[in-house]
Design a protein around this nucleic acid. Structure first.
Lengths: 221, 221
DNA sequence: AGTCAAATTCATCAGCGCTCAAAGTCAGGT
DNA sequence: ACCTGACTTTGAGCGCTGATGAATTTGACT
C-alpha cells in the first residue's frame, strides 16, 4: 500500500511540527496537528490512530504524536521531494523563489523517486532548497546544522543568512528586496526590546529595521 | 470543480480513442472505453452518464460516446500536459524516450498550467513529443497533419519518420536500435503480403524487415 | 423471427476523509 | 482538594468517488 497524499501530508506535518514547534516531549499535540492540516481535531485523532496501526507513528492519547523510524523516513522523503522540486523549479525552470511552494505541494505526491534523483543530480546534490531548508538525503537522513536566529546571534559580527522560515509570498518578496536572502552576509547592529525590533546592516551598508517576529524567521550562521 | 484525475483519464481515453479507433460515426463504443481504462463496462456507462450531465461528453446509449467542445478542450489540455512533460523529461532531464510515459501519466494530473507553459517555453514551443505525437496548443487545438504509415506510403521514395504509435518499451527500444526514430529518413523497398512484412532501407543503407503490424505503427511524411 | 454480442440498469459495496456533538481527561489556580 | 477551562477522544454518521456483478434490454445481423 503506497501512502495516499493525505497520509503523506499528515506525516509531513508531524515531521515539520515536531521539529519546529519546540515541544520538549518531542510529541506534537493533536490540536496543532489538526490546525496545521486545517481539519477538525477529531479528524486528526482518527487519522493518527490509523497511522499508529500502520506503525508509522507513536501515539500517546492526550499527549500527542511523534513519528516512528519508518514514519520518519517516509516523511523525510516527502520533504526531500518537496525541497528538491522547489530548488529545481527555481534553478532550472526559472521560477521565482516565492512561487515554488504551491507547485511543489502538488508535485511532491506525483513524482517518482527516479525523477527526484535525476533532478537532485542535475542540481549537484544540493543540501538546501531556495529557502535554506535542508534537503534530506535519499535515506531520509538530514544532518542538523546549528543555527541561530537574528534574535540570538552575536551582535556586531558578520553572519551569513542561511535560512528563511516562512513561505508567505509577501514576506519572501520583502526579504528579497532587502537583500536578506540565504547567502547574504549581514550584521546585527542593534536590538531593542522596547520597540520590539532588530536593526541590521546588510549589503552595501543598507540598514533596515525589522520586528522581532520577522527577525526570528531569519536564521544565520 | 476541477476534474479529478479519474475524470481526466476518461476524457483522455475518449479523446485518444475517438481519433485512433477509426469509428466512422465518431462515437467511441463503451466497450472500448471500458477496456482502455481497465474497468467493467457498467462502470464506464455510469461515469459517462455523469460526464454527459457535466456537459463534457455527448452520449448515445448503445452507440457510444464522444466529446463536446468543452470536453474536447479539457481532454486536449490533459494530452498537452502529458506530451509537454514527456518531451521535457527527455530534452531537459535526460530521460530515455521509452521511460517517460509512466512518469508523465502521473505528472499530467499534478502540474499547473503555469509550469506547463514554462516547460513549453523552455522547449521552444514544440509541436510534437518524443514519439512524434502532436502537442495541442494552450487552447487545446491541434492541427491535423496528414500522415501515412509504412503500409500506405509510396515505395522507393525517401520519407521521414514522424511518429511512432506505441508506448511499449520493447518496441521503442527496437525502433531506436534500428534508427527508426522520428526524424530519421528511410525508404520502403518492398512489401510482401505473403510474408506479412515490409522491408525498409534506413540510415547508412541498413536494411530491415518488419511485420505489417509493426509497420502500421510507424507514420511517415 | 431468432440469436448473440454488446450495453444498460440496479442493487450494492468499500474506502476515504471528514464533521459534529457529547463525553472524557488533565493540569493549574485558589 | 476541587473546580474550571482548554484540549482531546469517542462515536455516530455523512457524502463522495469509483467500482462490481448479475439480470435485463437493445439492436444488429442472418
Amino acid at each position: 500500500m503506497l501512502p495516499s497524499s493525505t497520509v503523506e501530508n499528515y506525516l509531513k506535518a508531524i515531521y515539520l511540527g515536531v521539529s519546529s514547534a519546540g515541544q520538549p516531549s518531542g510529541l506534537l499535540p493533536m490540536g496543532q496537528l489538526a490546525a496545521a492540516l486545517g481539519v477538525a481535531p477529531g479528524t486528526a485523532t482518527t487519522m493518527v490512530k490509523t497511522l499508529a496501526e500502520s506503525g508509522l507513528v507513536r501515539y500517546e492519547p492526550y499527549a500527542g504524536v511523534t513519528l516512528t523510524e519508518a514514519g520518519e523516513k517516509l516523511a523525510a522523503l516527502v520533504v526531500r521531494r518537496h525541497r528538491v522540486i522547489e530548488l529545481f523549479l527555481v534553478q532550472v525552470v526559472g521560477y521565482r523563489w516565492d512561487e515554488v511552494h504551491e507547485e511543489a505541494e502538488q508535485l511532491e505526491h506525483a513524482v517518482s523517486d527516479r525523477l527526484i534523483d535525476r533532478m537532485d543530480e542535475m542540481l549537484g546534490r544540493p543540501k538546501a532548497d531556495p529557502h535554506g531548508d535542508p534537503i534530506p538525503d535519499p535515506e531520509g537522513v538530514v544532518k542538523p546544522q546549528p543555527m541561530q536566529s537574528l534574535l540570538t546571534c552575536p551582535m556586531h559580527t558578520p553572519v551569513t543568512i542561511t535560512r528563511v522560515i516562512d513561505q508567505d509570498k509577501v514576506f519572501l518578496r520583502f526579504i528579497e528586496n532587502h537583500h536578506l536572502k540565504p547567502g547574504e552576509s549581514i550584521e546585527v547592529e542593534d536590538r531593542d526590546s522596547a520597540s520590539d525590533s532588530v536593526r541590521v546592516r546588510g549589503k552595501n551598508q543598507e540598514r533596515i529595521t525589522i520586528g522581532t517576529r520577522a527577525a526570528s524567521k531569519l536564521l544565520v550562521q
